[in-house]
């Protein structure tokens, strides 16, 4: 306990947790911090002017030579062996691969929840591997929308509160957050269930709520990890139609699936095999 408590104390003392984002010296130059804390509006129209058009030059995701292995006791389990992936603005990409091929691991790295052992990763032109833990959290709060297989809604909160939860971690004023939440819930067609709790919703409705949560912050990229895995095929197709609609409205989406029929909804399908990408 003393050891952990000391680490805890150190952790709290370490400035990077308290530190607010500082300008980063990276490929994107001084521009990086200009979008660091802002939440870009949902890209529902590809035509945009001024400063914002500037980052359209960059791919949303550009990861090169990503390697990641896990230590299983004394043996090393390589999962990703030099993955290269590039996702452009307003692309809808599906990643396919057998179970255990490292799809989730890759998605976590792309979602700034995890770091690769080696490689480079630029999100919207910014080298995120140089960011601190605090900064990565802020990036997740403002630029990344996760959709999980198991929905991962907080059971104690209503749909509205679940969708609003990410705004606890970004500097958005209350009224703005509220209107974004209501807008997102409307876009997934769940307005009539907005004050219900997860226990009162069907699987399809749960996933819609989760998509609304990912959508509400106006993320650069939506990352979905087998979003239809827990749904029957009919509901699964409804959800895929929703993704397709969002894509048509301007969203950039990376989706994991091991179902061909589901992956067909994407513009582009890439396969993950033996820790490498084999583009189709």
């Amino acid at each position: 306990m003393t050891r952990s408590a000391w680490y805890g104390l150190k952790m709290i003392m370490i400035p990077d947790i308290f530190k607010h984002p500082t300008p980063q010296q990276d490929g994107a130059g001084g521009r990086a911090n200009s979008w660091f804390n802002d939440i870009s509006p949902l890209p529902n129209s590809p035509r945009r002017g001024g400063e914002e058009s500037e980052y359209l030059q960059y791919p949303v995701i550009e990861a090169i030579d990503i390697e990641k292995s896990y230590w299983m006791g004394s043996t090393v389990l390589p999962v990703l062996n030099g993955v290269k992936i590039r996702v452009e603005q307003n692309e809808f990409v599906a990643i396919m691969g057998p179970s255990g091929s490292g799809k989730s691991t890759l998605l976590h790295i792309l979602g700034c929840l995890d770091r690769p052992d080696t490689g480079t990763y630029h999100l919207g032109g910014r080298n995120v591997l140089a960011a601190t833990d605090y900064e990565l959290s802020r990036i997740r709060a403002t630029q990344i929308g996760f959709v999980f297989q198991a929905f991962n809604l907080l059971p104690a909160l209503t749909v509205f509160e679940n969708v609003r939860a990410p705004f606890s971690y970004s500097r958005i004023n209350k009224r703005e957050a509220r209107s974004r939440v209501e807008n997102a819930v409307a876009r997934v067609g769940l307005t009539h269930r907005i004050h219900h709790r997860p226990a009162e919703l069907s699987g399809g409705e749960l996933q819609r709520a989760a998509i609304a949560r990912a959508l509400a912050i106006g993320p650069k990229i939506i990352l979905a990890d087998e979003p239809t895995g827990n749904l029957d095929s009919k509901t699964g197709f409804e959800i895929m139609n929703l993704f397709q609609k969002l894509h048509q409205e301007g969203a950039s989406i990376v989706m994991i699936s091991h179902n061909h029929r589901v992956a067909e909804f994407a513009q582009r399908v890439i396969a993950l095999m033996d820790g490498r990408i084999t583009d189709k």
């Binding site: 709290i12 947790i17 605090y134 959290s137 997740r140 403002t142 991962n152 990410p166 971690y169 970004s170």
Partner: peptide
């Protein structure tokens, strides 16, 4: 634990969780 994981994915910093 699950809630902590979800909140972290939604953007909570370690400080937020603390």
């Amino acid at each position: 634990t699950k809630e902590i994981g979800i909140r972290r994915a939604l953007g909570a910093t370690r400080l937020d969780i603390t």
